[in-house]
Design a protein around this nucleic acid. Structure first.
Length: 426
RNA sequence: GGACAGGUGGCCGAGUGGUUUAAGGCGCACGCCUGGAAAGCGUGUGGGCGGCAACGUCUCCAGGGUUCGAAUCCCUGCCUGUCCGCCA
């Protein structure tokens, strides 16, 4: 959520920063500032009256105690009281609209990120070399079908397109990758493992910023709960409404969960196979830290994601997203795109973001500074560590052999139990 | 799902309409005492909003209502506990 004081006191620079997102918010911002002024005016009048009422009430109490008659005083109070009630109702209206509007303002992009929309994204560096083949590499949907790993038609039969079924060694591969990633993040990077609920309340989805912006991208149950689109949502919100101690920060969490995305109207290009699906598995990293620490924390969390791809030997590149391309809640996002030889493309396998105090403000996650003092909003960060389907795509496509088999990366062999997928076991 | 009992500050706990602008205790912080510590004594100790500040105001699970005035009375919801039912 935007800090309305910023909008009020540093209006021009704040508006200029928001304008980097390339969406027109001026009307909204004007209305917010207007409402904020009204709000303060009403508070001023209401509180003045309340102070008078409280003093008079004390007086009534004293008179009654002494056995006196307070009738005269009471008749005047009745009017005052209804006036207060009116102002309070008005205040509530204003605050409701103000909150509704403010919740739709995206986060302020950090100064260092590139300008522009998707075209402004910058490739910062590349790790590893795309593999060379003496034959025409196949796409993962063919490999997955031939080796009996992925059954798309049956998934479509059960739940519709975009719901893959993993079978045999394919299912084992998911399990192996999940455990491999969790082990690294827990044992080597020091994250606390979390197994969160997969359904969350509306308030929770508001806290991390999926609502109201991405309403159409989430599955909603008849009970009003939402299926999580990422573990970020339940995990970050664990601390909603809490005041943490600075010395307990950063809090670092890793969670494996399925992710559910409606992805309305996403048919067509780049959606074949399991590139873009309605349900997929992901290992997610979340860090909650003090405000000053978030730049350092960003480098850490990004590095932790990279380790996974490096250990799996997957070529990838790091993309700095432009201000017009980052997500609603993000202040800065780097994507890790993994190379996939069969589809001949870079695929986003991880997205690392810092949300500065945006989510902290929405979910009311605060910390008390060392040495005491008023609480501050926490900064939150997350990164995929990493998403499974695109890792599987890269693994199958990059490691395929001319005989149709797929070599398992060495680091994953202990988890898979075999060093090669041949289709024999599926 | 049904019945009953509850939800008060960091924690325990008192409080059934008016100095509760929340008693008391624990914890914590500071001070006194001490060679040092413990004990003891004293002082302080939540959050939000408005205000340059003084200060004001709100906050006893949440939201409505009654009243001049609500932690306290009424309604709705959420959560917790116990028992029963159902169930992986």
């Amino acid at each position: 959520m935007i800090d309305i004081k910023l909008l009020r006191d540093e209006s021009e620079s704040t508006r200029a920063t928001l304008a980097r997102r390339l969406s027109d918010l001026d009307g909204y911002l004007d209305r917010i500032v207007e409402l904020e002024e009204q709000r303060r005016g009403v508070i001023l009048s209401a509180e003045g009256l309340k102070a008078e009422r409280n003093r008079a009430s004390e007086e009534v109490s004293r008179i009654k105690k002494d056995g006196g008659d307070a009738t005269v005083l009471l008749s005047g109070l009745k009017e005052k009281s209804s006036e207060i009630k009116g102002l309070d109702a008005r205040l509530k209206e204003i605050e409701t609209e103000l909150r509704k509007k403010a919740l739709r303002i995206p986060n302020l992009p950090l100064p260092e990120i590139p300008d522009g929309g998707e075209d402004g994204n910058q490739i910062l560096r590349t790790w590893g070399d795309p593999p060379e083949f003496d034959f025409e590499p196949k796409a993962h949907w063919d490999i997955g079908h031939e080796l009996g790993l992925i059954d798309l038609p049956r998934g479509a039969k059960i739940a519709g397109s975009g719901f893959p079924v993993f079978t045999g060694a394919g299912a084992r591969l998911l399990r192996a990758l999940r455990n491999f990633m969790l082990d690294i993040h827990v044992d080597q990077h020091g994250y606390t493992e979390i197994a969160p609920p997969h359904l969350v309340t509306e308030e929770t989805a508001l806290g991390t910023g999926q609502l109201p912006d991405l309403e159409s991208n989430m599955y909603r149950t008849v009970d009003g709960l939402y299926l999580i689109p990422t573990a970020e949502v339940p995990v970050t919100n664990m601390h909603a409404g809490e005041i943490l101690q600075a010395e307990d920060l950063p809090r670092t969490y890793v969670a494996y969960t399925p992710c559910y995305r409606r992805e309305a109207g996403a048919h067509g290009k780049d959606t074949r196979g399991i590139i873009r699906v309605h349900q997929f598995d992901k290992v997610e990293l979340v860090r909650v830290c003090e405000a000053e620490q978030s730049p350092v924390e960003f480098d850490k969390i990004l590095g932790h994601s990279e380790v996974i791809l490096q250990k799996l030997g997957m070529p990838y590149r790091v993309l700095a997203l432009a201000a017009g391309d980052i997500g609603f809640a993000s202040a800065k996002t780097y994507d890790l795109e993994v190379w996939a030889a069969g589809v001949d493309n870079w695929l986003e396998a991880s997205s690392a973001s810092t949300f500065t105090d945006f989510q902290g403000r929405r979910a009311n996650i605060r910390y008390r500074p060392e040495g005491g003092g008023k609480p501050h909003f926490c900064h939150t960060l997350n990164a995929s560590g990493v998403a499974l389907p695109r890792t599987i795509i890269a693994l199958l496509e990059n490691n395929q052999q001319e005989d149709g088999s797929v070599v398992i990366p060495e680091a994953l062999v202990p988890y898979m139990g075999v060093d090669r997928l041949t289709g024999a076991s599926s």
